[in-house]
Write a protein that binds this DNA or RNA. Sequence first.
RNA 1: GCAGGGGUGGCGGAGCCUGGUCAAACGCGCAAGGCUUAGGACCUUGUUCCCUAGGGAUGCGAGAGUUCAAAUCUCUCCCCCUGCACCA
Length: 962
Amino acid sequence: MLDYKSMQEKWQKAWADARLFEVEPNEKRGIMVFAAFPYVNSPPHMGHLRTFCTPDVYARYLRTRGTNVLYPFGFHATGTPVIGYAKRIANNDPDLLESLRTFHVADEDIKRMVDPHYIVDYFIKQQEAEFRKVGNGVDWRRKFISIEPLYSKMVEWQFQKLKEKGYLVQGTHPVGWCTNEDNAVGQHDTMHDVQPDIEEVTAIKFKDKDSDAYFICATYRPETLYGVTNLFVNESVEYVVAEINGVQCYVSKDTAFRFSYLFDTKVKGDITAAELLKKVAINPITNEEVPILPGYFVKADKGTGVVMSVPSHAPFDYVALERLKASGYPVPKMEYRKLIELKFPDAKKGLGSTLKPDEFSGSTGDAVHHEIPALAYLEFLRMNPDVDDESVELATKLVYREEARYGVMLVGEYAGKDEPEARDKIKDDLVKSGDAMLMYELANDEPVICRCGTKAIVAIVKNQWFINYGDKKWKEQVHAMFSKMKIYPEKYRHTFEMLIDWIDLRAMERAQGLGTRFPFNPEHIIESLSDSTIYMMFYTFDYILRANDVKPQQLAPHFFDYIISGEGDAATVSKETGIEESVITRCKESLDYWYTNTSSHSAPDLIPNHYLMYMFNHVALLPEKFWPKQIVANGMVNYEGEKMSKSLGNIVPAGDAVGKYGADQVRFIEVAGAELDSDTEFSTNSLNGVNSRIEYLLSQVIEVIKAENGNELKGVDFWMYSRLNSKIKKATSSMDGLMFKGAYDEIFYASIGELKKYKEMGGRNGLVVTDYLSAVIKMLSPIMPHIAEELWHLLGNSTLAATERWPETDEGMLNMELEESFGIVDSTVEDVNRAMELTGKMEANKGKKAKSVKVILAEQWKTEAYNMLVEGKEIGEIIASMQDKAGKDKAAKYLQGFKNRKEATQQVLATQQSLFNAFSESSDYLKKKFGCEVEVEKEQDSKSARAQRALPSKPSIEVVWS
RNA sequence: GCAGGGGUGGCGGAGCCUGGUCAAACGCGCAAGGCUUAGGACCUUGUUCCCUAGGGAUGCGAGAGUUCAAAUCUCUCCCCCUGCACCA
């Protein structure tokens, strides 16, 4: 067993000493391969390794193909998470502390993590150390953090350009808001990490008949305005008169407070529910007068505290009126208008058929009163209107859902239209005519609580800067570029295309967090995804700046204009900035060389955000030669059959995994354990399989260096060479397409099998095995770089395997006929085993031993006729061309058999003679397999009754029992 | 709700775009046997049902259609997953 740890360190040092990964532009074709830089609020775990090892394997592969490859690395620290992290440390958050201990963070370090910058430094150090340990060949000279001053200068340049080009716009935007901290609240800022779910609601104005004031009713269903019978206010709620956007309104006191964050709102004075109840309101769409009635269910903090009542379609309204009547309240006579008809597509659908089993446990009944849909749904759920508020809730949901899906308007301007369409049009009309306004509300079922303990609401942020990704022309350009890009796996192409169309305004400034100050509002910083869309460019010249002690303030916009777009000239820029002209020129050359050809790697979760912005920003800011060429998205890593997650407590730190399982084992299973697009399974099982094969390879290397060379080449040797070259060919094309599993199934797994088979079939030529192993080890080097070095040197080489070239396919050694012949030998072994088992069970043969096995090879004319059938020739035609090689009846029958069974699909290359040779050469092997004598016969020479059953790729078998 | 993706064996997962080579690659699991001091290592064989010397039947979420022929194309329905913006 190898000592993996010291072996890994040995070779990592050898690579470092040879400066293999510190690359500069040269005359070769260059490519920069990079992974999306990681966020530094946690130590890396096994799952991360896949995303960072995949580009390394790819980079190492490309190097073996003669490409000059740069694999740089950087770190992302912008935004609020690190700050939140520091706060949690200060509060001794138990979950966080426990997770840090899992990752072996010392108490001493945890204490100092109250400082966000300490967190950043700590995790950068740790992440770098662990990515080194796993053998990634990174040019670490180019490392940077997204919060360093030099970097910020590039981001400033970027946003100035975006503004110049008209891609920055100002506007309003609804956000979750904490009124205590006066700050936007996102998922990270709430208790239990709830995402504030903001919903647009239509607020309809009902004029007070006797004044200029309006009742404001919030509704999701403006189309039901045609059926309003009354308004509800709650007698236990406090109301106010407020001036909202210049209009006198009646709303709950709570609403006035929330509206002050949405609209221009001034509270004029209190008004009691009792006073409101005396009023009469006017329906803006029908101009009908509607009374105000008490509604027990109306809430002060939802909607506006005033509810429009549509008893025909709203179960709550229906029930409230029923209860009111029952209580003896003088409810005027009113008309329950049916506004929407359900039109089901087929007989299987009906009222209530969208009810899901987990929504309702009771039994349902018949809906009778279809003229009042709200009642019909209540009947369907068999609810008791006096007590069963839960059913009313569910009935409301059902009406809403089914009318949206199957409903057709019966009344109003949009009669005959589907309900959702009518709803939107009516809403737009009302807003346009000033009879309604749009408000926002949190739609979460539970209240959203800020971490400070205050209930969050919705606020509209004014004069907020956005990047306008909705720009049509911009989108077109991105589409055009995208169509030329390579996407791995290709299945994401469609997703990308949809998303390019979908992305719209993106708010890009924040009040809090680490990062670059926004040039047009220095109070704010640039949002943390927006500041990381062209950062890869920085790798190509940042270390040149640092090496020459360039200061941030020297990085004037003209510097970037020159090196990126070639605007101006180096001398002028040098004069302006004080940066030496040669340094500027080197930056430009480096950028030109590395940035014209790139491959970007990450997990697919970055597609709808980072990658979209990556493409848009490149198109907007950089010349076409620097546009992205290739995006690679890799799947996740499961551990022992489960997703790695905090809740399962099965997160394995990267360092632990490498220490415990070995760097190459981890690399292999994570990168080649599954194809790029699917999740890979890290299990003891897969690890054992990999380890045992590594051991086997090692044993073969040791054996072959002791073996004798120079025997004459036999069939099996040619077979081995053919297999090797087929393997190289297949693996090369798989690697080129980033199909690492396909490639390494061939290189690693299949090779072990072939080495064993070769020996079983009597192969013993040391030279052949050495050639074979050398090629396999070279191909193994990208994914198992340490072990490949070890084996490579054991074989007697003194060069580094990492610098060896990938083997070329020697077409002259390919012999598909031979490979097929030996393949048929193998499949025949399986058939014989089966035949022996079956015949052994027969009465006559019980307890006996097989004496011999006859393998009878089909006559050559069968193969020829069969191949003609595959070519699509008619049977008659084939028989005619057969002449007298076989009896015509025999040939016809044989061919018809194939045709009927639809088996004539692939040509058979092996001739009878080549099969005969393969079987003859394998006779020792076969004897050992069967444990009895083996006779190989040609059909035309055989006396066996079974001889004529022989088919081209399937010899006839006869087991002879003693 | 909107948008995107998907439903194949005990499981993971190919194949579906370019219909016939598909009882279904490859892997895992499971079963029997072998090897072995032992084994989570390795090697055989099997793993829908029936037949039992390489034969047949059924089958790819449900239903219908197109076709000589459908997991593969069309339509309808059912179910599942992911994203929806201030969050990296």
